[in-house]
Design a protein around this nucleic acid. Sequence first.
DNA 1: TCATTAAATTGTT
DNA 2: AACAATTTAATGA
Length: 224
Amino acid sequence: MTGRTDIAGNAIWAGELTPDELERARRGMIERAFAKGGYICHRGDKLDYWTGVVEGLVKISTISHSGKAMTFAGAAAGGWVGEGSVIKDEARKYDLVAIRDSRIALMPRATFMWLFENSTGFNRFLVRQLNERMGQFIATIEYDRILAPRARVARHLSWLFNSVLYPAERSEIEIGQEELGLLAGLSRQIVNRSLQELEAEGLLAVSRDRIRVFDVEKLGRYGG
DNA sequence: TCATTAAATTGTT
DNA sequence: AACAATTTAATGA
């Protein structure tokens, strides 16, 4: 950890790149630490970096005109966000907030654009990711008003296990109930009750700071 | 290794 | 939001 980690080499898109491209990606890559509650960027900022979560948990959110906080998505370790703003070279349309102490990888816009224009593998990754997120946003629109808290918790959880966004195979994730509440836009109490209900249905098992999922498929379809 | 205490998280109201 | 119960981490005998 004192010597610098190979952020690029360990990134989920590293496998899509040629050795040459990967070497290029390594250049200028920065890693920064953010404390719990810290803003990685605010809406309106012009952040010239593509952002990856090395360790920790981040939420992508904004404050609506009515003053209500709204979370679009969460990003756990291994997730990368913000390519839209980087590609279009425009200000961020949302806040990036660390929900817990996190280590964030930053890829300079110049590097990102080079990969974007030269690496087919990198583009393959981007298309997959954008396509996957599109599906999530559509789901968000339909469920946000309609579905019960239980279903919201279920879907947010399933997203954290999304195999496209987080290729690493795993059956459990380190996340507290308060953190999950921040992601889903629900109070800790509601999350607690919802998790107990989902557990009673045999979809998952909760323990301290940890949730083990038995049926990701079912969670994703929950209530829909 | 075990016991004690402090801190963080979860369960309830 | 407040409070109790539970789990974990840290400390020291």
